[in-house]
């Protein structure tokens, strides 16, 4: 095996049982680290396959209902703003880059950069969720707009405020909800609630995955801080990265299917 010169990380702790990467040995039932890495990677890819299959059900439902009720879908989609969707796409793509970069950083012992990139990836995840909840879900569900939402300027001010002026109410905008809760007064299609059902289910489950991914990255970040990952052992970083790329990939398919149809 090639030897790697070990630079000490500016790590904050190694006392609490954390094994530094250059001393890491594989779990006892693996013959060596390489075999363990391969095994974990195979397991992760299988898990990603199950995730794709999980979403495949949603994509099937999307296809079926779009074929059955094309008008409902184009009409419903017209209420989505492609700019928010596009911005979120960019946010996730950038985060995928920083995630991949952090793996490279760990392999090259650039721990400060690795930590920055992991934090930046998490920040992107948070930004994605904020955009989704503040600028997309909330106004469509309830008619309440976040005060910084540029779309507010296109609507007449109803004068209603909430949370100390943080949210402004727009008359006749909310009610774009799934199933029987759909009560949007200007709806032109009887099946539009199905579109919203698919939209909320698909993006909601995707958002859950974003949150899980951020949790994984946070866990990896703490382990990088403890100096547990390095050139000869970076399994966790790589796996979190694979998971995060999947989250990105699913969105790459959701974005055009939801926002760019007409």
């Amino acid at each position: 095996m090639t030897t790697v010169p070990i630079r000490e990380t500016e790590s904050h702790a190694t006392a609490t049982g954390a094994v530094p990467w250059h001393k890491y040995k594989a779990a006892h039932h693996f013959r060596n680290k390489e075999e363990e890495f391969d095994g974990v990677k195979l397991g992760m890819w299988l898990f990603l396959a199950t995730e794709v299959l999980l979403f495949s059900g949603l994509f099937c439902a999307y296809a079926v209902f779009r074929i059955l009720h094309p008008e409902a879908f184009t009409n419903g989609s017209s209420y989505l703003d492609w700019r928010w969707g596009g911005l979120n796409t960019v946010v996730l793509l950038v985060s995928s880059y920083t995630m991949a970069a952090s793996i490279r950083n760990v392999q090259l012992q650039q721990f400060a950069r690795a930590k920055f990139n992991l934090l930046f990836t998490m920040a992107c995840g948070l930004a994605f969720l904020c955009i989704k909840f503040l600028f997309e879900y909330t106004p469509k569900w309830s008619g309440w707009f976040f005060v910084l939402d540029p779309a507010l300027s296109h609507h007449e001010d109803s004068g209603k405020r909430a949370l100390g002026g943080l949210f402004h109410f727009v008359e006749g905008y909310g009610g774009k909800r799934p199933g029987e809760w759909f009560d949007y007064p200007f709806s032109t299609d009887n099946y539009e609630h199905l579109w919203w059902s698919v939209y909320y289910s698909a993006t909601g489950i995707h958002a859950t995955h974003v949150i899980i991914g951020m949790g994984l990255i946070a866990w990896v970040y703490l382990r990088v801080r403890k100096g547990m990952y390095g050139p000869t052992h970076y399994t966790g970083v790589e796996m979190a990265g694979l998971y995060w790329h999947l989250v990105d990939l699913i969105w790459i398919f959701l974005f055009p299917l939801l926002y760019l149809i007409h």
Binding site: P178, G179, E180, N190, H193, L194, S197, S201
Partner: peptide
């Protein structure tokens, strides 16, 4: 979701299949 949020994907009463 269908039972809790009435999303209607499978319920013919809500247009589902």
């Amino acid at each position: 979701f269908e039972r809790l949020f009435r999303v209607g994907i499978f319920d013919p009463g809500l247009g589902g299949d």
